[in-house]
């Protein structure tokens, strides 16, 4: 059997794949956070709960309405995104111009309330969600076994991240978004309905979280706390990448997933802390993050 540094190839590549999968979730979630922070100046602590809502919406669509995975992939982001729009209109809007701390408190409180409601309704043990029939099985690549569903998650996450990046960097809508991130007042005075753009941006960021939740449902258990566990790591990813940087959040998300996976192979004891160690080092050397603009 092929070995690298004394590690059997299937083990190494298996962990690398696992790292990429985790990285895919880090990337989509931190991308949503970055987009929201850029325009709303709010650190959306509800993000983990909204990711969980995406997974639960998929579960409810399947078990209550008989709508399968593909419908969930479309409907869950729309439904959870709409709930985000409601939150923005009713609550977040009122925080405009106040200190970051208020947005943080509000979204953190909301996350606790949402998680509590789901725990009350569904209990805290996880619910199973089956891999869709089209994506069962896997490929034997010779050096490792690649489950189809995991390959799908990596590919579709990359595609969603790249599409979002392209829209923001290369389109007219994206230029409004970037300009409004810098100076919302001037952009609004040019005739762009910035308040509506802010609302839709929050809805989009939340929809991204829900999309990640649907992708995650067949891999992890659908449970009320699935987002709370993940979001701590995602915040570290955001800090490392640089608050509000779009490309930074994508690259850092995938990169840190892979680093975490490799750490599991070479130094398993450190795997759960490696991201936070990297965060501490980055904060010491580049306080604005790897891709952040200083100041």
């Amino acid at each position: 059997m092929t070995e690298f540094f004394g590690i059997p190839a299937p083990v190494l590549f298996g962990q690398l794949l696992l790292g990429l999968i985790n990285g895919a979730f880090y990337a989509i979630l931190s991308l949503g956070l970055a987009v929201i922070f850029g325009l709303l100046n709010i650190i959306n602590f509800t993000h983990g709960a909204q990711y969980m809502m995406g997974a639960f919406t998929a579960w409810m669509l399947l078990n209550w309405l008989g709508l399968g995975y593909w419908w969930a992939l479309l409907l869950a982001p729309l439904l959870v995104g709409a709930s985000g729009i409601l939150i923005e209109r009713l609550l977040l809007k009122r925080l405009a111009g106040l200190d970051h701390l208020y947005g943080l408190l509000l979204t953190f409180g909301l996350a606790l309330v949402i998680q509590g409601l789901y725990r009350d309704a569904f209990g805290s043990t996880g619910l199973p969600y089956a891999i869709p029939a089209e994506l069962r099985g896997g490929q034997n690549l010779g050096f490792m076994f690649l489950p189809n569903y995991r390959a799908w998650v990596v590919v579709v996450s990359l595609a969603v991240c790249l599409a979002t990046w392209l829209v923001i960097e290369k389109t007219r809508l994206g230029s409004y978004l970037r300009a409004a991130t810098e100076n919302p007042t001037l952009v609004q005075a040019m005739g762009v309905d910035v308040p509506k753009m802010v609302t839709l941006t929050y809805g989009f960021g939340v929809a991204l979280a829900a999309f990640a939740g649907v992708l995650a449902a067949p891999i992890y258990q659908v449970s009320p706390l699935m987002g709370a566990d993940l979001i701590i790591v995602v915040f570290a990813v955001v800090v490392i990448g640089g608050m509000g940087s779009i490309l930074g959040s994508i690259v850092t998300g995938f990169g840190l997933g892979v680093i975490e996976g490799l750490t599991k192979v070479f130094w398993p004891e450190a795997s759960s802390t490696v991201i936070f160690v990297i965060m501490a080092i980055v904060l010491l050397l580049r306080p604005a993050g790897l891709f952040g603009r200083a100041g």
Binding site: L186, Q188, A189, M190, G191, D193, P195
Partner: peptide, 12 residues
């Protein structure tokens, strides 16, 4: 609001 004012044909 400002975006409605701008749409009356005024620019700053």
């Amino acid at each position: 609001p400002p975006h409605r004012i701008a749409r009356l044909g005024i620019a700053w």
